[in-house]
Amino acid sequence: MSALTYVRPDGVDEAIALVSADAGAAFLAGGTTQLDLLLKDGVIENSTLVDIGRLPLTGTSLLDGAVLRIGALTTMADLAEDPVVRERLPFVREALLAGASIQLRNMATIGGNLLQRTRCRYFRDRTVAACNKRRPGTGCAAVIGPARMHAILGADQNCIALHASDLCVPLVALDAEVRVQGPGGERTVPLTDFYVLPGRSPDVEHVLGHGEMITHVDVPLPPATSRSRYLKVRDRASYEFALASAAAALVVEDGTIAEARLALGGVGTVPWRAGEAEEMLRGVPATTAMFRAAARAALRDPYTLPGTAFKVELAQRTLVRVLEDLAEAAS
């Protein structure tokens, strides 16, 4: 990059037009991962940044009292203080607060959080030749490296890059929807369908086309009787990505689980919805034995390496711990 063009358009349509027209252009929101990768690591190459940071896509609104609509440019800090998030989505707030330092929460946006790139140090080091995500077809250096902060679910020998977002873990459990605007108009994508498993094309991470922008995230609120919790396990007590995390929202009625929403972080190439585990828990007594069985199901068929094998057990225990905490609180 011998020169960088910076543009700050006044409207969404103009921003979309600018990026759509230029293959080397990208949106710049909070910038916390974008600028790191572009300027410092040199692993992405944009000749133009279209700064959307001041577009009017901030704040939240409540739709029909049932869905929280979050502007894509709302910061993590502001969303964490949102009254609806505080009251109805405590685990979203917990994930936001555990997700980054105060400085980064003041900068990073919700849309940017959804689109954050992996922390994989093989992806982020342009001198590493083998990276299917960066240069499709070159292989994966991480699978022979000392991988620790890597994925075990949705991973294979082609890519073990972790999706490191904390926020996305409760959001994917809640069936959040992503509202997208692009050159072809608007569309809505369920967050569970938004990310693409690496498979044979780890370079493709999500369903957005060039020039498409996240404008809002719609989060259906769980029932008022639901209790939720996000638990993040990491080496350092703060300011670190998760080794494993679990988000759970439970409705427990008379000791029986009426509804369960579960997702895992720190283990997946995408934010990992534990759908099978949810099914297993619906309608059964809230007991540790049930939780353990569900956790085993959630971690079925992991792809592990010597450095990541411990995550299978850790993630199960993390999920069980969260469920036990919620069941205890409900009783």
């Binding site: 790191d36 700064d51 980064l104 900068m107």
Partner: peptide, 27 residues
């Protein structure tokens, strides 16, 4: 660190603390 990982560059931008290494001057 110049990578948003240490906080040494913290300044206030419109009254809020941010890491200035991950903000373009242009922004």
């Amino acid at each position: 660190c110049d990578q948003g990982a240490c906080g040494a560059c913290t300044v206030h931008l419109d009254g809020r603390p941010v890491v200035s290494c991950l903000v373009l001057a242009a922004q």
